[in-house]
């Protein structure tokens, strides 16, 4: 586990710059964005993060975060 970087710092969220202002836990980001946990999935730097790890997983400067859900498709 790498050392914890103290906010504020920048990450890339769904292709856009995003500032982590205080709590660096992934679960805090999900909460702040008001996302419904049951409907989404997250990867950080191209690796899927299991829902059970969101609480303990800390974001780091420059992390590339993708948050996805299901949309209409064929």
């Amino acid at each position: 586990m790498s050392t914890q970087a103290l906010p504020p710092f920048q990450i890339e969220l769904n292709g856009e710059p995003h500032t982590i202002a205080d709590d660096a836990r992934l679960s805090a980001l999900v909460q702040r964005l008001k996302l419904r946990k049951g409907r989404i999935a997250i990867e950080i730097n191209r690796a899927v993060i299991a829902k059970s790890e969101w609480e303990s997983r800390l974001l780091h400067p420059g992390d590339r975060v993708e948050i996805v859900n299901f949309v209409g498709g064929g």
């Binding site: 769904n14 292709g15 964005l33 989404i40």
Partner: peptide, 15 residues
């Protein structure tokens, strides 16, 4: 269904 990025600016939208 397809898998796409969530709408970060309006996450309250219907799914």
């Amino acid at each position: 269904v397809a898998v796409r990025r969530v709408n970060i600016t309006d996450a309250t939208r219907e799914n």
